[in-house]
Design a protein around this nucleic acid. Structure first.
Lengths: 337, 337
DNA sequence: TTGTACGCGTTATCAA
DNA sequence: TTGATAACGCGTACAA
């Protein structure tokens, strides 16, 4: 690899001058500029970003940590796509680190990004507690933002959407359409998101004076297969319901398939609501209603805040997002029996 | 940020000793080891990877370039997930750079990874020509592997699956099941993959002595909406067919929805085959057959080769993968009318 | 077993 | 307008 020094020699100038030409800082005569550029061309010189970043103490990169349990599915794609786009819009590069599937590995991933001296870090946590992340935010010199969690102490360093309220709203809509027997498929209950959605379901029932039947609740694990399994379990229990809320779209899709396959209940007879809006779902299951989580908007806010902080700014206020309920025919019509 | 020097002072030793303790190279007495570790604890020291990488001339990272037009969908997720997993298995970190949506931006992304001094780079090209990539492979000091293209000169630096043969095979299967009128939805025809699949379709027909009807071919753009639009166009033309091959699963899904909505042809009456196997598809459209591209295996081979090259190895031979046709009932049964 | 001193490829601060 | 030269934080011969 040819270095700046070799370029300098070839052009008959010093390293410093080459550096000036490249960075645009400082005065350089047009004549020497030309000579330098020519030398660069001839030698195929490429700047070493490691050296540059070490010297400037800036890497122009944002780090992003996500668990790979989220990798499958369109939700992650949307997250990643927008994060990359917005980061580059701000003239920076996104570096992705895999949080894998444990708290330790999530910690390691964060640490890696910090050790790489990313200018700032975005964490979409899955295993780490809110308290630990509050600690990380305070300890680190780099600005840090946490997605999908509400930090206790540094709430302005987090951007989240109110899963409980969104779910409560969705269930309320079903109740108002006349549904009384509403089944619920949970997500993994070691995830706050899963717990919050379940809690929203329960609160909506209470709020409308509808008794809670544990028999109408089945546990899922976010993926389609577990949604299908949950429906099997509900049916095996002899549960009857006119509506079904699944804690995400993937499970909702698995659930609908199982409803169809089992033949006990035709899908059209059950109103189904999911979450996160797998973008492809409407093409296949037009009857699936969904609560759309505004990932794009949330990422945008997150990155804006980070950039602002990098420029020395400080946020006092926090911002909550809420899911938007997109209803399809089967819900709008109310119960079919 | 506390540096190694500060740790050294606190422990009453020299930088070199701290470095030895951290890397495990060279002899250090247990006693001083303990002192150093304690000093590290107390000061919250973290090594600066930029400095380390600059000094060692190794970054322990693999770069991956992918266009964001691939981000949506499960194919990309599987690619990324496995790439990250395997890279970390080899004790390295994956760095993702967005190739965005033009040849220039794809070049920039590759250049960025090289400038960051990634030890090796994987390119999943969308816009760059095979010739240009052959050039890049030869010019660069870092090992480079190209996914989903067959390089002309450096074929051992590429891993691809034979799209033409896979598609030909799929269409042949349909023909052998008794289908004679087989519609085809192309991918974007500025992509080699799209062209190859179309060519496989045509060749299969020729091979079986079935006349080619241009009226049975409609253009798509890889996404579900374009698959639906293609079906609309076919129907508007008055085309009749008992089977339909779409150049990927997303379009196949859109196509099936359109077949259903239009009511002209019930989906069950048409055997549909897609490509790439959107993992979620079987949960929703059990009747969708698909050619599974072995992404996981291909990534595995790619990374193995890179690691081997980093250790000074050189590959003489090349390896082709081929898609595996997964047939569902509607195809196995043959034409329904 | 430990310390000294130099190199990695840049940027940045001075003089000149 | 240009050139020495000192950082940046770490690895590593070489010497002790």
């Amino acid at each position: 690899m040819t270095t700046m020094l070799e370029v300098a020699k070839r052009a008959g100038v010093s390293k410093a001058t080459v550096s000036r030409v490249l960075s645009g800082n400082g005065y350089v005569s047009q004549e020497t500029k030309d000579r330098v550029f020519q030398a660069i061309e001839e030698s195929g010189y490429r700047p070493n970003l490691l050296a540059r970043n070490l010297a400037t103490k800036r890497t122009q990169t944002l780090g992003l940590v996500v668990t790979n349990t989220l990798y499958h599915g369109v939700y992650f794609s949307e997250l990643l796509f927008n994060a990359a786009r917005m980061t580059e819009e701000k003239g920076r590069q996104l570096i992705l680190a895999d949080g894998k599937h444990s708290a330790d590995e999530e910690r390691e991933a964060i640490q890696y990004l910090l050790d790489m001296r990313c200018d700032a870090v975005i964490i979409y946590p899955r295993f780490l507690s809110v308290d630990e992340m509050d600690e990380i935010v305070e300890k680190c010199e780099q600005p840090i933002m946490v997605l999908n969690r509400r930090l206790r102490k540094n709430s302005s360093h987090s951007v989240w959407s109110d899963h409980k309220a969104s779910c409560q709203e969705a269930v309320s809509q079903l109740i108002e359409k006349g549904h009384r027997e509403i089944a619920f498929i949970t997500g993994s209950l070691d995830s706050p998101t899963g717990v919050e959605r379940l809690s929203g379901y329960k609160d909506a029932l209470v709020q409308h004076g509808i008794p809670l039947h544990e028999g109408l609740i089945a546990q899922g694990k976010w993926n389609p297969a577990s949604g299908a399994a949950a429906v099997s379990e509900l049916l095996a229990r002899g549960a009857t319901f006119t509506a079904l809320v699944a804690s995400n779209d993937d499970m909702a899709i698995g659930a609908m398939k199982q409803l169809h396959d089992s033949g006990v209940v035709t899908p059209d007879a059950v109103s189904v609501i999911g979450f996160d809006d797998v973008a492809i779902a409407p093409y296949i299951v037009p009857s699936l209603s969904s609560v759309r989580i505004p990932v794009t908007e949330m990422i945008k806010e997150t990155i804006s805040r980070l950039i602002f902080m990098l420029d020395g700014g400080e946020f006092k206020y926090q911002q909550t997002f809420s899911g938007e309920l997109v209803l399809r025919d089967s819900v709008i019509d109310g119960p079919h029996r």
